[in-house]
Design a protein around this nucleic acid. Structure first.
Lengths: 131, 131
DNA sequence: TAATATCCTACCAAATAGGTATGTATTGAT
DNA sequence: ATCAATACATACCTATTTGGTAGGATATTA
Protein backbone atom coordinates (compact mmCIF):
# COMPACT_ATOMS: atom_id res chain seq x y z
CA UNK A 1 0.00 0.00 0.00
CA UNK A 2 1.77 3.07 -1.20
CA UNK A 3 1.09 6.45 -2.66
CA UNK A 4 3.17 7.25 -5.71
CA UNK A 5 6.07 9.66 -5.76
CA UNK A 6 3.81 11.73 -7.99
CA UNK A 7 1.82 12.54 -4.89
CA UNK A 8 4.98 13.19 -2.90
CA UNK A 9 6.57 15.44 -5.52
CA UNK A 10 3.34 17.24 -6.24
CA UNK A 11 2.65 17.92 -2.60
CA UNK A 12 6.18 19.22 -2.09
CA UNK A 13 5.85 21.55 -5.04
CA UNK A 14 2.48 22.78 -3.84
CA UNK A 15 3.81 23.42 -0.35
CA UNK A 16 6.62 25.39 -1.94
CA UNK A 17 4.08 27.42 -3.91
CA UNK A 18 2.16 27.96 -0.70
CA UNK A 19 5.23 29.57 0.78
CA UNK A 20 5.58 32.00 -2.11
CA UNK A 21 1.84 32.64 -2.40
CA UNK A 22 0.48 34.84 -3.88
CA UNK A 23 3.69 35.08 -5.88
CA UNK A 24 4.42 32.74 -8.75
CA UNK A 25 7.38 30.48 -9.38
CA UNK A 26 8.72 28.70 -12.45
CA UNK A 27 9.08 24.95 -12.81
CA UNK A 28 12.80 25.43 -13.09
CA UNK A 29 12.99 27.04 -9.67
CA UNK A 30 10.64 24.48 -8.16
CA UNK A 31 12.55 21.54 -9.58
CA UNK A 32 15.86 22.87 -8.30
CA UNK A 33 14.58 23.70 -4.85
CA UNK A 34 12.77 20.40 -4.40
CA UNK A 35 15.26 18.22 -6.31
CA UNK A 36 12.70 16.90 -8.74
CA UNK A 37 13.43 16.19 -12.39
CA UNK A 38 12.36 19.25 -14.40
CA UNK A 39 10.71 17.29 -17.16
CA UNK A 40 8.80 15.09 -14.78
CA UNK A 41 7.64 18.00 -12.67
CA UNK A 42 6.49 19.70 -15.86
CA UNK A 43 4.02 16.89 -16.37
CA UNK A 44 2.86 16.90 -12.79
CA UNK A 45 2.20 20.64 -12.89
CA UNK A 46 0.29 20.05 -16.10
CA UNK A 47 -2.14 17.70 -14.44
CA UNK A 48 -2.43 19.97 -11.42
CA UNK A 49 -3.38 22.73 -13.80
CA UNK A 50 -5.90 20.56 -15.63
CA UNK A 51 -7.53 19.96 -12.25
CA UNK A 52 -7.64 23.64 -11.52
CA UNK A 53 -5.27 23.65 -8.56
CA UNK A 54 -2.77 26.06 -10.09
CA UNK A 55 -2.84 28.92 -12.57
CA UNK A 56 -0.03 29.53 -15.01
CA UNK A 57 1.38 32.30 -17.12
CA UNK A 58 3.39 31.42 -20.17
CA UNK A 59 6.35 33.11 -21.74
CA UNK A 60 9.44 34.64 -20.25
CA UNK A 61 9.10 35.30 -16.52
CA UNK A 62 6.08 33.03 -16.47
CA UNK A 63 5.32 30.45 -13.80
CA UNK A 64 2.70 28.90 -11.55
CA UNK A 65 0.53 30.19 -8.71
CA UNK A 66 -1.90 28.40 -6.42
CA UNK A 67 -5.45 28.93 -7.58
CA UNK A 68 -6.63 29.32 -3.99
CA UNK A 69 -5.23 30.57 -0.73
CA UNK A 70 -3.06 27.99 1.06
CA UNK A 71 -5.59 27.96 3.87
CA UNK A 72 -8.24 26.79 1.44
CA UNK A 73 -6.36 24.09 -0.42
CA UNK A 74 -5.98 20.65 1.08
CA UNK A 75 -3.46 17.87 0.64
CA UNK A 76 -6.34 15.60 -0.32
CA UNK A 77 -7.15 17.67 -3.36
CA UNK A 78 -3.54 17.67 -4.50
CA UNK A 79 -3.15 13.95 -4.05
CA UNK A 80 -6.40 12.98 -5.74
CA UNK A 81 -5.56 15.26 -8.65
CA UNK A 82 -2.28 13.44 -9.21
CA UNK A 83 -3.03 9.90 -8.13
CA UNK A 84 -6.71 9.61 -8.93
CA UNK A 85 -9.51 8.95 -6.50
CA UNK A 86 -8.59 7.76 -3.04
CA UNK A 87 -10.13 4.30 -2.91
CA UNK A 88 -8.09 1.70 -1.07
CA UNK A 89 -9.92 -1.17 -2.72
CA UNK A 90 -11.62 -1.47 -6.07
CA UNK A 91 -14.84 -2.61 -4.46
CA UNK A 92 -15.24 0.72 -2.68
CA UNK A 93 -14.97 2.71 -5.88
CA UNK A 94 -16.85 0.61 -8.39
CA UNK A 95 -20.11 -0.11 -6.61
CA UNK A 96 -19.66 -3.79 -6.04
CA UNK A 97 -22.91 -5.71 -6.48
CA UNK A 98 -22.48 -7.87 -3.40
CA UNK A 99 -21.27 -5.09 -1.11
CA UNK A 100 -24.21 -5.44 1.25
CA UNK A 101 -23.60 -9.07 2.00
CA UNK A 102 -19.79 -8.81 1.85
CA UNK A 103 -17.93 -9.13 5.11
CA UNK A 104 -14.91 -7.29 3.79
CA UNK A 105 -16.57 -4.21 2.41
CA UNK A 106 -17.07 -2.44 5.74
CA UNK A 107 -13.40 -2.33 6.50
CA UNK A 108 -12.46 -0.85 3.13
CA UNK A 109 -15.21 1.70 3.38
CA UNK A 110 -14.14 2.82 6.82
CA UNK A 111 -10.52 2.90 5.76
CA UNK A 112 -11.34 5.09 2.80
CA UNK A 113 -13.18 7.44 5.13
CA UNK A 114 -10.26 7.68 7.54
CA UNK A 115 -7.73 8.33 4.81
CA UNK A 116 -9.82 11.06 3.26
CA UNK A 117 -10.47 12.61 6.65
CA UNK A 118 -6.74 12.80 7.30
CA UNK A 119 -5.72 14.12 3.90
CA UNK A 120 -8.52 16.64 3.58
CA UNK A 121 -7.80 17.77 7.12
CA UNK A 122 -4.42 19.14 6.11
CA UNK A 123 -4.43 22.48 4.33
CA UNK A 124 -1.27 23.68 2.64
CA UNK A 125 -1.16 26.48 5.20
CA UNK A 126 -1.11 23.97 8.03
CA UNK A 127 1.77 22.21 6.32
CA UNK A 128 3.82 25.36 5.74
CA UNK A 129 3.36 26.44 9.36
CA UNK A 130 4.61 23.07 10.53
CA UNK A 131 8.33 23.69 10.19
CA UNK B 1 -3.61 4.69 -3.74
CA UNK B 2 -4.79 1.12 -3.67
CA UNK B 3 -4.33 -2.07 -1.81
CA UNK B 4 -3.79 -5.07 -4.04
CA UNK B 5 -6.35 -7.75 -4.70
CA UNK B 6 -3.92 -9.98 -2.83
CA UNK B 7 -5.04 -8.21 0.31
CA UNK B 8 -8.67 -8.44 -0.71
CA UNK B 9 -8.54 -12.13 -1.59
CA UNK B 10 -6.46 -12.99 1.42
CA UNK B 11 -8.76 -11.17 3.79
CA UNK B 12 -11.80 -12.87 2.29
CA UNK B 13 -10.20 -16.26 2.68
CA UNK B 14 -9.23 -15.52 6.26
CA UNK B 15 -12.72 -14.32 7.12
CA UNK B 16 -14.01 -17.55 5.64
CA UNK B 17 -11.59 -19.52 7.82
CA UNK B 18 -12.74 -17.48 10.79
CA UNK B 19 -16.26 -18.71 10.17
CA UNK B 20 -15.20 -22.35 10.17
CA UNK B 21 -12.74 -21.92 13.04
CA UNK B 22 -11.50 -24.06 14.69
CA UNK B 23 -12.24 -26.33 11.77
CA UNK B 24 -10.03 -26.46 8.71
CA UNK B 25 -10.81 -25.99 5.06
CA UNK B 26 -9.02 -26.85 1.85
CA UNK B 27 -7.88 -24.33 -0.74
CA UNK B 28 -10.24 -25.91 -3.20
CA UNK B 29 -13.24 -25.18 -1.02
CA UNK B 30 -12.00 -21.69 -0.23
CA UNK B 31 -11.37 -20.85 -3.86
CA UNK B 32 -14.81 -22.05 -4.91
CA UNK B 33 -16.64 -20.28 -2.12
CA UNK B 34 -14.81 -17.00 -2.60
CA UNK B 35 -14.45 -17.21 -6.39
CA UNK B 36 -10.69 -16.90 -6.37
CA UNK B 37 -8.41 -18.75 -8.77
CA UNK B 38 -7.23 -21.89 -7.03
CA UNK B 39 -3.64 -21.58 -8.12
CA UNK B 40 -3.41 -17.96 -7.12
CA UNK B 41 -4.98 -18.59 -3.74
CA UNK B 42 -2.52 -21.41 -3.23
CA UNK B 43 0.27 -18.88 -3.37
CA UNK B 44 -1.48 -16.44 -1.08
CA UNK B 45 -2.07 -19.13 1.53
CA UNK B 46 1.59 -20.03 1.23
CA UNK B 47 2.70 -16.56 2.25
CA UNK B 48 0.10 -16.43 4.99
CA UNK B 49 1.56 -19.64 6.32
CA UNK B 50 5.12 -18.33 6.08
CA UNK B 51 3.99 -15.43 8.22
CA UNK B 52 2.47 -17.76 10.76
CA UNK B 53 -1.15 -16.71 10.31
CA UNK B 54 -2.40 -20.15 9.34
CA UNK B 55 -1.48 -23.74 10.06
CA UNK B 56 -1.80 -26.45 7.46
CA UNK B 57 -2.08 -30.21 7.23
CA UNK B 58 -1.01 -31.93 4.08
CA UNK B 59 -2.37 -34.97 2.33
CA UNK B 60 -5.87 -36.10 1.66
CA UNK B 61 -8.46 -34.25 3.75
CA UNK B 62 -5.81 -31.69 4.59
CA UNK B 63 -6.37 -27.96 4.69
CA UNK B 64 -5.79 -24.72 6.56
CA UNK B 65 -6.75 -23.40 9.99
CA UNK B 66 -6.25 -20.01 11.59
CA UNK B 67 -3.27 -20.08 13.93
CA UNK B 68 -5.13 -17.90 16.43
CA UNK B 69 -8.70 -17.33 17.50
CA UNK B 70 -10.59 -14.96 15.19
CA UNK B 71 -10.91 -12.56 18.11
CA UNK B 72 -7.14 -12.33 18.29
CA UNK B 73 -6.27 -11.94 14.63
CA UNK B 74 -6.55 -8.56 12.97
CA UNK B 75 -7.04 -7.46 9.39
CA UNK B 76 -3.84 -5.46 9.71
CA UNK B 77 -1.79 -8.59 10.25
CA UNK B 78 -3.34 -10.29 7.26
CA UNK B 79 -2.81 -7.33 4.97
CA UNK B 80 0.76 -6.65 6.01
CA UNK B 81 1.59 -10.31 5.57
CA UNK B 82 0.38 -10.23 1.98
CA UNK B 83 1.18 -6.70 0.87
CA UNK B 84 4.20 -5.87 2.95
CA UNK B 85 4.52 -3.12 5.54
CA UNK B 86 1.83 -0.47 5.60
CA UNK B 87 3.74 2.69 4.71
CA UNK B 88 1.89 5.12 2.51
CA UNK B 89 5.07 6.89 1.43
CA UNK B 90 8.61 5.66 1.09
CA UNK B 91 9.90 8.40 3.36
CA UNK B 92 7.95 7.03 6.31
CA UNK B 93 9.45 3.58 5.99
CA UNK B 94 13.05 4.25 5.04
CA UNK B 95 14.13 6.80 7.63
CA UNK B 96 14.51 9.79 5.38
CA UNK B 97 17.48 11.93 6.35
CA UNK B 98 15.67 15.24 6.03
CA UNK B 99 12.46 14.13 7.75
CA UNK B 100 12.83 16.64 10.56
CA UNK B 101 12.96 19.65 8.29
CA UNK B 102 10.52 18.25 5.75
CA UNK B 103 7.10 19.85 5.56
CA UNK B 104 5.53 16.78 3.99
CA UNK B 105 6.68 14.12 6.38
CA UNK B 106 4.15 14.90 9.12
CA UNK B 107 1.19 14.17 6.93
CA UNK B 108 2.51 10.81 5.77
CA UNK B 109 3.38 9.83 9.30
CA UNK B 110 -0.06 10.67 10.60
CA UNK B 111 -1.69 8.93 7.68
CA UNK B 112 0.28 5.78 8.35
CA UNK B 113 -0.82 5.91 11.94
CA UNK B 114 -4.49 6.30 11.02
CA UNK B 115 -4.41 3.46 8.51
CA UNK B 116 -2.76 1.09 10.95
CA UNK B 117 -5.18 2.09 13.68
CA UNK B 118 -8.11 1.25 11.44
CA UNK B 119 -6.77 -2.04 10.11
CA UNK B 120 -5.48 -3.33 13.41
CA UNK B 121 -8.75 -2.31 15.02
CA UNK B 122 -10.64 -4.92 13.03
CA UNK B 123 -10.37 -8.48 14.26
CA UNK B 124 -11.59 -11.30 12.05
CA UNK B 125 -14.28 -11.93 14.66
CA UNK B 126 -15.56 -8.41 14.30
CA UNK B 127 -15.71 -8.91 10.55
CA UNK B 128 -17.56 -12.21 10.71
CA UNK B 129 -20.11 -10.77 13.12
CA UNK B 130 -20.74 -7.92 10.74
CA UNK B 131 -23.11 -9.62 8.37
C1' DT C 1 13.97 38.75 -32.52
C1' DA C 2 16.04 36.10 -29.03
C1' DA C 3 15.41 34.10 -24.73
C1' DT C 4 12.58 31.92 -21.51
C1' DA C 5 8.60 29.98 -20.12
C1' DT C 6 4.56 26.73 -20.46
C1' DC C 7 2.49 23.02 -22.97
C1' DC C 8 2.01 18.71 -25.66
C1' DT C 9 2.95 14.05 -27.15
C1' DA C 10 5.50 10.18 -27.91
C1' DC C 11 8.69 7.01 -26.27
C1' DC C 12 11.14 3.96 -22.89
C1' DA C 13 12.87 0.77 -19.08
C1' DA C 14 11.94 -1.29 -14.83
C1' DA C 15 8.89 -2.89 -11.48
C1' DT C 16 4.56 -4.76 -9.98
C1' DA C 17 0.24 -7.19 -10.39
C1' DG C 18 -2.24 -10.99 -11.26
C1' DG C 19 -2.27 -15.22 -12.85
C1' DT C 20 -0.93 -19.99 -15.13
C1' DA C 21 1.77 -24.34 -15.64
C1' DT C 22 4.13 -28.05 -14.02
C1' DG C 23 5.65 -30.83 -10.94
C1' DT C 24 6.89 -32.81 -6.03
C1' DA C 25 5.88 -34.41 -1.39
C1' DT C 26 2.77 -35.95 1.95
C1' DT C 27 -1.14 -38.16 3.77
C1' DG C 28 -5.65 -40.74 4.24
C1' DA C 29 -8.77 -43.94 2.34
C1' DT C 30 -9.60 -48.22 -0.30
C1' DA D 1 0.20 -51.17 -1.65
C1' DT D 2 -1.89 -48.01 -4.36
C1' DC D 3 -4.58 -44.18 -5.58
C1' DA D 4 -6.57 -39.84 -4.94
C1' DA D 5 -6.43 -35.61 -2.77
C1' DT D 6 -4.09 -32.24 -0.72
C1' DA D 7 -0.26 -28.87 0.42
C1' DC D 8 4.00 -26.98 -1.34
C1' DA D 9 7.53 -25.09 -4.63
C1' DT D 10 9.11 -22.78 -8.60
C1' DA D 11 9.24 -21.03 -13.00
C1' DC D 12 6.99 -18.61 -16.40
C1' DC D 13 3.88 -15.21 -18.64
C1' DT D 14 1.20 -10.85 -19.95
C1' DA D 15 -0.62 -6.40 -19.02
C1' DT D 16 -0.41 -2.30 -16.45
C1' DT D 17 1.72 1.18 -13.79
C1' DT D 18 5.56 3.95 -12.48
C1' DG D 19 8.92 7.14 -13.11
C1' DG D 20 11.13 8.99 -16.18
C1' DT D 21 13.31 11.23 -20.94
C1' DA D 22 13.19 13.49 -25.70
C1' DG D 23 11.84 16.70 -28.82
C1' DG D 24 9.43 20.07 -30.14
C1' DA D 25 5.42 23.63 -30.49
C1' DT D 26 3.46 27.79 -28.57
C1' DA D 27 3.27 32.00 -26.06
C1' DT D 28 5.25 36.06 -23.88
C1' DT D 29 8.45 39.54 -22.64
C1' DA D 30 12.85 41.92 -22.47
Amino acid sequence: MKFSTRAEYGLKAMINLAHTFPGQKSIKELSEEESISLKYLERLMGTLKKNGLVLSTKGQSGGYVLSKKPSQMTAGEVIEALDGPIAPMKCTSSNCAIAKSCNSSTIWTELEHQIKKTLYGYTLKKLTDKK
